[in-house]
Amino acid sequence: MAEAVTAQAARGAIGDSEFDRDTAVVRREPGVHDIDLSAGWTIAGAVNGGYLLAVLGRALADTLPHSDPFTVSAHYLTASRPGPAVIRTDVVRTGRTLSTGQASLFQYDDEGHEVERIRVLASYGDLDALPDDIRTSAEPPAIPPLDRCFDAQDGPAPVSGSSAIVERLMLRLDPATLGWALGSPSGKGEMRAWFGLADGRDTDPLALLLAVDALPPTAFELGLSGWVPTVELTVHVRSRPAPGPLRVSITTRNLAGGYLEEDAEVWDSADRLVAQSRQLARVRLS
């Protein structure tokens, strides 16, 4: 399995891959971008939240004087569908090291009314200009080697309907967090996996916005099933990832009132913490 992943690495390159094509935005005029949201990044017909974040992240990179997302906070207002969408961006502030902007994605509903799907506030900078000083107590997650983990397609489909996004990802799930697939969820809100893009494209800062929302929900290991829609998601990008597969660890400590939080850490092949996130999501309790 590891050999297969290595062989894929020559087929995808940053700037020339399915992810780049499907997140590409076309500037219609300053502050307005068009995109056709791909059906390839959907789960049960709904467009994945991490893919959407990468789409808006690319529009903001085209709008702001800095190109790298540092922090991105998104509120998911209505479910996005594959098809045409418009992104409107505004520059909030520009500075020497950071610039801040906001963006909203709109689509038309069945009655022809414009509907806002997602709204983002983000600060951008230059990751390559950050100092090398690191002081941390964080440690990479203990995940078995790739050849001892399982493909996301090895188990039963956790959500009814198509999961097209799975075909575009290299996900190898930690067996210790796969009890839900065997009918015996652990009761622990944990999910861990190796992550990459299926065509071998290395992960850049925009793809990190996808990585934090690409694993099966931790709710599955709590004995719940079905769609777990994101209400709010904040991502902190800490460093440009080194080439190679990433390790993603997601934990939930509290489910109450039909909502849970998910805290994610993303580690690169050089054992660096390259991204963190927290999201609030809604769960179906019955």
Rank of each mutant, 00 (worst) to 15 (best):
T234H: 04
D154N: 12
A2Q: 12
A39K: 11
L98R: 10
W227L: 15
G83S: 15
Y259F: 15
T78N: 14
L285N: 04
P229A: 03
Y124S: 08
L53S: 15
I35Q: 03
S286A: 15
V237P: 04
W227V: 13
A242P: 03
R58C: 08
L273E: 11
D271V: 11
L210I: 09
I165V: 13
L127C: 07
P217L: 06
G161W: 06
A181K: 00
R148K: 15
P229V: 07
R168L: 05
A7P: 10
A142P: 05
M1E: 14
L182H: 15
L64F: 02
P205G: 10
D36Y: 09
V120R: 02
P144H: 02
R192Q: 14
A54L: 05
A181H: 02
G50N: 01
E116Q: 14
D36N: 10
D147Y: 10
R88V: 06
L53C: 12
P84H: 01
L53G: 12
D22Y: 01
G200R: 10
V228A: 06
T89Q: 08
R27F: 07
V32E: 01
T177F: 09
P217V: 02
D263E: 08
D34I: 12
L197C: 09
W227N: 10
D151G: 09
P30A: 09
Y51P: 03
V5Q: 12
C149R: 00
H33G: 13
R28N: 06
E139R: 14
S104D: 10
T63N: 10
T252E: 14
L169N: 00
R27P: 07
A176H: 05
T23E: 02
A198P: 00
F150L: 13
V47S: 06
Q276N: 07
E221L: 04
